[in-house]
Amino acid sequence: MIAIENITKTYRMGAVEVQALRGVSLKIERGEVVSIMGPSGSGKSTLMNVLGCLDQSTTGRYLLDGVAVDSMTDDQLAEVRNRKIGFVFQSFNLLRRLTARRNVELPMLYAGVENGRRRRAAEALEAVGLGDRMDHRPTELSGGQQQRVAIARALINNPAILLADEPTGNLDSRSGEEIMQLLLNLNHEHGITLVFVTHDPKIAQHTQRIIQVRDGLVEEGLA
């Protein structure tokens, strides 16, 4: 499903170069659940952004479903983000002006879905347990509820992969636990590939595979 080879990412700030990734190779198979751990500043988010096609690597190869992502145009990348990948952020990243339902509808708009958007958005919100909060705006929802909306949005175009960068980072432990349960269920019930970043070893233990990132390099190891 995902195969990256010798990925590097260099940020340039004036004269100073920061190497956030220094040659990362990884393979993630369809249906896997993978957690990524590592100290702050080690390059986890950088890696997730590259995997999620939000950012492009400086060097290295990235094959997604056998397709080379490195050589894609901006618009092709947008389509990949739209259809193949669902991304869940630590800070939810919902549009504040829109209701929960409109937020969930957005990826369908960009996918050009003509019919049934309202219905499908409503179903997705029901599936994450927010059937009674559809017309609330993000500011009228709790953190856990906002993250559920974000998950419904990430899933609405039936992506094969769900990437989550510290999805529970802004939540208390109870709603964090609920969100993790929701994500793991998605894997169990629909076989969606799940990759997430976490700082919590207890959460990481739920996963089949743990990838440690240190100083821009990965070390695989079972927890």
Binding site: R81, N82, L106
Partner: peptide
């Protein structure tokens, strides 16, 4: 950024 992340093209 959010719109682009969920698939908006240029």
């Amino acid at each position: 950024g959010i719109r682009k992340a969920i698939g908006a093209r240029k």
